[in-house]
């Protein structure tokens, strides 16, 4: 394990692995297995995976530093883009399946419901990060500016957890677990930058 080397196959395998949550939804859909409230199931599944991919993205730097596998950085963009991909699915589910393009209701939701407001903010903030994720954009912006822009991911993840926290009716166990993981990932960075 110490000498685990990068090979393009790792990236290829990861690419397909990241499609499993979507594949599972499609499979369930085709086999009538989405349960009693399928739209709720899809909303929750895509939301959960958006948050999972955000946190996995945030894991990569600590993991790279702790393991010394510098090649892990080569996977970060893809995982980050998958977070955006699942966020798009989640958002489309909401707009299409949940609200059925009822624009008035959607606008009202975004303004009036704090959990939707923060979820929406997180989604909007993800867009510039996805758009500037290419090498060309990195060059164009310059490393420093690119990096400060991409620090938005911290805010996005916080908004994502807050979104989850505010939407549960009473049982906050799951959002709490996400909050603890996110706090450790952010805490690691604070400690790391102070000790440099």
């Amino acid at each position: 394990m110490q000498h685990m080397q990068y090979s393009p196959a790792i990236k290829g395998a990861l690419f397909f692995a990241c499609l499993i949550p979507l594949g599972r939804l499609v499979w369930f859909g085709l086999h009538n297995q989405l349960g009693t409230n399928p739209i709720e199931f899809i909303t929750h599944s895509t939301g959960t995976w958006t948050l999972n991919f955000l946190l996995i993205t945030l894991c990569i730097t600590p993991l790279r530093q702790l393991s010394g596998w510098s090649w892990l950085i080569k996977l970060r963009r893809m995982v980050g883009l998958y977070a955006f991909f699942y966020a798009c699915l989640h958002f489309i589910t909401y707009i299409w399946l949940d609200q059925f393009f009822d624009v008035a209701a959607i606008i009202k939701d975004v303004i009036k419901r704090p959990f939707i407001t923060v979820g929406f903010a997180a989604f909007i903030l993800l867009i510039p990060l996805a758009l500037t994720s290419t090498h060309a954009m990195l060059k164009k912006l310059g490393g420093k500016r690119w990096q400060s822009l991409h620090r938005l991911i911290y805010l996005i993840a916080i908004l994502g957890v807050l979104h989850f926290w505010w939407l549960v009716k009473k049982d906050i166990t799951e959002p709490l677990i996400y909050a603890v993981i996110l706090a450790s990932l952010l805490g690691y960075r604070v400690i790391n930058s102070n000790s440099r």
């Binding site: 409230n37 609200q99 059925f100 009036k112 419901r113 959990f115 505010w166 939407l167």
Partner: peptide
């Protein structure tokens, strides 16, 4: 409305549109 979500519509289990 419930303070955190709207009560204007509902999804009848088994139906697609609210």
């Amino acid at each position: 409305d419930h303070p955190r979500w709207s009560q204007a519509k509902e999804r009848r289990i088994g139906e697609f549109l609210k």
